[in-house]
Amino acid sequence: MAVAEQIRPTTDALLKTEAPKRPRNLGQFLRWLLLFIGGIAMVMPIVYMLSTSLKWPHEVYNLKLIPDEPTIENYTYVLEDGRFYWWFVNSLVIALITTVCNVIFDSLVGYTLCKFRFPGRYIIFIAILSTLMIPTEMLVIPWYLMSQQFGWLDTYWGIMFPGLMTAFGTFLMKQFFETVPDDFIEAARIDGLNELQIWWIVAMPLVKPALAALAIFVFLGNWTAFIWPLIVTNSVEMYTLPVGLSSFGDEADVAWELIMTGAAISTIPTLIVFLIFQRFIIRGVVMAGLKG
């Protein structure tokens, strides 16, 4: 009995501390609710895309999520259409080459701006940064004129050249190279490496998370790019996936079911990239403090 008496105050105290949990749970519930609504808003277009890709043309404007007569006819049509492969390959080649170039050039410039002291370094960095403020829509005219002058219209080079190096990537890499201690660079210099070797063997492995984040941003950005490839390409064979998909249909009607089918297939590489590199994407966004 005495023991029970001794325990009771403790139990009462515990019960008292349980009480304030309610508001916390409510707050948590509201947070979850908001996240749920946000999640639905994000996922719905994708669900709707998949749903439409499984519909017959006459059902497209029916907003039902589950088609009355589901079909994979659209997938068969798109995959049997030779153009789709061309567009897929074009997009893949362009996205991969641009990604590799960005990883190399952005990190080279970022490294140089970060680790070398030379006159005008700060001005160059500010000049590169200031290009972030110019919207793509403004740049397409000079890009187009350049492409025309150099004969790059309707070529891979024409599609890729504006994105082979980016101000965002340079900024991201410069910030990351700041975290590489100068001692590492100097130790490598004493050990006999030249500057290019130091960049490649010592500095680059130390900024792998940033490189992965940059690669993902650049790949996804180029995979989904629309305006510039639309302007610079003329022939159907040179279209990228987004441009090609938008061309499904004719002047009288847009074949939404085919566009959605193509879009669904084109998300597969994006999904693979996301699933493999999800950790790096989150880290990259957090570290850069910017959206890719």
């Binding site: 201690p181 001692d183 590492f184 100097e186 130790a187 210099r189 004493i190 010592v202 492995p205 130390l206």
Partner: peptide, 20 residues
């Protein structure tokens, strides 16, 4: 002469050993 040609070796305060 460049550091590599001076026939010296240096140990740094932060060790400067490569983590990778």
């Amino acid at each position: 002469l460049e550091p590599k040609d001076r026939d010296i070796a240096m140990v740094f305060q932060n060790y400067a050993i490569y983590p990778h």
